[in-house]
Amino acid sequence: MSESFSGEPFSDNRAKNRFELAVGGQTVFADYRRSGGTLLISYVEAPPSLRGTGAAGRLMEGVMGQARAEGLKVVPVCSYAALWIQRHKQHADLLA
């Protein structure tokens, strides 16, 4: 699945088990593992030049939207993902 999110292409790269957001020729990504009705987010990475720009947060919005669309619960193993969800209470209902 590929869609435009905030004008940036967001996709689920199932071959690599990661969500990707293309930003200015670079890729922000979140590694995941699906297990039944659960989506475990194990790692979120932004290239150094994109850190602090909100790119990883836009990626996380896409991840949560994807989880909601698929009816999945989220387990944020990655500390960034866990803190992001904690700060964005509108997604708390997706926590496993």
Rank of each mutant, 00 (worst) to 15 (best):
A69T: 09
K16G: 02
L72A: 08
P76A: 00
G65T: 08
G24Q: 04
P48Y: 11
D31P: 03
F5N: 01
R51Q: 10
P47R: 07
A56C: 04
T53K: 07
L50F: 06
S4W: 00
S4N: 03
A15F: 14
L39G: 02
W84N: 07
R68W: 14
G71K: 10
R87I: 01
M64D: 00
L94P: 05
G37E: 12
A96F: 12
F10E: 01
T27G: 02
K73Y: 13
A56H: 11
V75Y: 14
K89M: 06
R14P: 05
V75P: 03
P48I: 00
L95T: 06
D12V: 15
A46V: 01
L50R: 07
S49I: 07
G54W: 11
L50Q: 02
Q26R: 13
E20F: 13
A15N: 14
V77M: 13
Q86E: 15
L39C: 00
A69G: 13
G71S: 04
S6M: 12
E3P: 02
S35T: 07
K16C: 05
D12C: 12
Y80I: 01
G24F: 06
R18I: 00
R51I: 08
L40H: 13
S35D: 09
A82L: 09
G36V: 10
D12F: 14
S79H: 11
R33N: 04
A69N: 13
E61D: 08
L39N: 00
A96I: 03
L94G: 06
M64R: 04
Y43E: 04
S35G: 05
I85T: 01
I85E: 00
A82P: 04
A67Q: 08
A30P: 05
G54R: 09
G54T: 05
L39M: 12
S2I: 10
Q26G: 00
M64P: 03
E8S: 14
T27I: 14
L72P: 07
D12P: 06
L40T: 02
S11H: 11
G37V: 06
S2P: 02
G52W: 14
E70M: 15
P76S: 02
Q90C: 09
R68T: 11
Q86G: 10
A56G: 08
E20S: 05
G36E: 09
R68S: 12
E8I: 04
L40M: 07
L21W: 10
L21P: 06
L94N: 08
A69C: 09
K16V: 03
S35E: 09
V63G: 01
S79I: 02
R14F: 11
I85L: 10
R14T: 10
Y80S: 04
M1G: 14
L72C: 08
L21D: 04
A56F: 11
I41W: 13
G24T: 00
P9V: 11
F29Y: 09
H91W: 15
A81M: 04
S79E: 09
W84Q: 05
L83A: 14
S6W: 14
A55C: 00
